[in-house]
């Protein structure tokens, strides 16, 4: 449980940092770079969340006797 609580802060931190980088790059006039940064951050977080959802589904399958 304690190990997984960190993941919430990871996700929130990545979100805040990506928003910050996005703003800075936008101010510098590099719109396309800003979008790439957002996309990469989003993919990283999406991968983490997808892993956990997969864990949840296997756990549900195991618990509720799905074959």
């Amino acid at each position: 449980m304690t190990y997984e609580v960190n993941t919430i802060f990871y996700i929130a931190g990545i979100g805040i940092i990506v928003a910050m980088i996005h703003t800075v790059l936008k101010q510098m006039g590099k719109e396309d770079w800003a979008h790439w940064v957002t996309l990469v951050g989003f993919i990283i977080v999406l991968y983490m969340v997808a892993t956990f959802i997969s864990d949840l589904f296997t756990e549900i399958k195991r618990t509720f006797l799905f074959k």
Binding site: I8, I53, L56
Partner: peptide, 17 residues
Amino acid sequence: EQKPMFAFLLATFTGVM
């Protein structure tokens, strides 16, 4: 405020946990 997508993923992850 900044990134609604991350907020959604965070909520999803909390639900999963």
